[in-house]
Design a protein around this nucleic acid. Structure first.
Lengths: 218, 218
DNA sequence: ATATATTTTTAGACTAGACTAAAAATATAT
DNA sequence: ATATATTTTTAGTCTAGTCTAAAAATATAT
């Protein structure tokens, strides 16, 4: 049996190992989980014993295939529930995360597969992130951060890095949605702020914003 | 903050106090929760301290208004999710209970109210039980057990006492559904089995079955 | 009314998951 | 290369919820 806490640690390790180095450090994991390093160490040991992770003292942790499978199953559930909340219950994209964090732990294969069907097999969640299929396969999208985009090119918005309500509301205010076309006009060398054109409307976004918006080259 | 375990104890106390004496004994509660009496005692103390229950040593436990409110909120969630599972995801009425036991603990007022609307404000769950409204009001239905019905009268099936998959499947096999009209033909004094007519079809059910089917006089 | 049986509570121990404080290992800087 | 700083682990403690075994209260039977 896998506990709710174990699931959350596995999910955190999975996400951390995608954004950055392969192996996840105890401190980073502790920070992601809002606990102390000693707690993270304990849990890493436990996950290793249960076969979800590989771990050598002082060397950080990596998920095993079994651990990755667990992570992808949770991510599938999380993202399908997000689609449900937005498409069927009228939530906005900045309201869904917290509730989906709870719903992702419901255990019932039939539930999640019927939900998938009810939603007509969506490929992406409301933030543009891909939904793993029933076997845990998740298409890899070659995405670029706005902060790494090239002047003169046109991109489409395909997702966010930060799904906090604040950031998502900022995007709404500036009429940036999933699928929005974004043209890179000018990058200010001094503070790395970027002038972009969206819906024929030019404005400048800060580097902190640019580091949290994923684009795909058109 | 109220924990998942506390919620489950409160729900159990609520259900036990409806079916039987007003105050719930430690042993009955322990049995309902599949734990030992000592664990039930500990939890009863804790619920009393938190204001959800009133308790005097050796005298059993009763929910306070605050405790009842918690119970009704959980029951509302449980039953709404059951409707969702059957109406939208194609579950059968014997498959929903276990999943609803998990879903009932999701905390999000917006979620449950939007779900209520999405389902078009249902009044009953798939087993015929009434759904409490947003303020915790639950209509009281004057229901009769089949085992207490009177020969010669015609009733409608309005719910079940036992929602185990086995019992619900028995009902399906015999074409007894919610709303089915049931005429009481004859009660066998020896073993209290009852001959009934459903859909113009006569057959006999045992007393154990009769004690788990709720009817309403037509 | 007293003995016996049942129910309930208490006392003490266990596990999961968290914490603090200190020790050990690794990384960085001069 | 050695001293210093940072990261990670260990050791020991805490809480929630469970358990067993024994004690205390209540109920039942003669």
């Amino acid at each position: 049996m896998i506990t709710l806490t174990e699931e959350n640690y596995i999910k955190a390790i999975f996400h951390l190992s995608l954004q950055g180095k392969e192996t996840v450090s105890t401190n980073d994991l502790a920070e992601a989980m809002n606990t102390k390093a000693s707690s993270a160490t304990d849990m890493i040991k436990k996950l290793s014993e249960k076969g979800y992770a590989n771990y050598k003292k002082y060397q950080g942790v990596i998920l095993t295939d079994s651990g990755k499978k667990v992570a992808l199953s949770i991510i599938r559930k999380h993202r399908l529930w997000e689609v449900f909340l937005v498409d069927k219950l009228g939530f906005t994209w900045d309201e869904v995360h917290e509730v989906a964090e709870q719903l992702e732990h419901i255990k019932s294969p039939k539930l999640i597969n019927q939900l998938d069907r009810f939603l007509d097999y969506p490929k992406h969640d409301p933030h543009g992130d891909p939904i793993p299929d029933i076997n845990g396969n998740m298409p890899i999208v070659e995405k670029t951060l706005l902060s790494q985009a090239q002047v003169g090119h046109i991109y489409s918005c395909i997702g966010v890095n930060d799904s906090s309500a604040e950031f998502l509301q900022y995007l709404d205010t500036n009429n940036i949605q999933l699928g929005s076309e974004i043209e890179i006009m000018y990058i200010e060398p001094f503070d790395k702020s970027i002038k972009i054109k969206v819906n024929n409307n030019e404005f400048t976004v800060s580097n902190s914003v640019a580091k949290n918006l994923y684009l795909k080259k058109n």
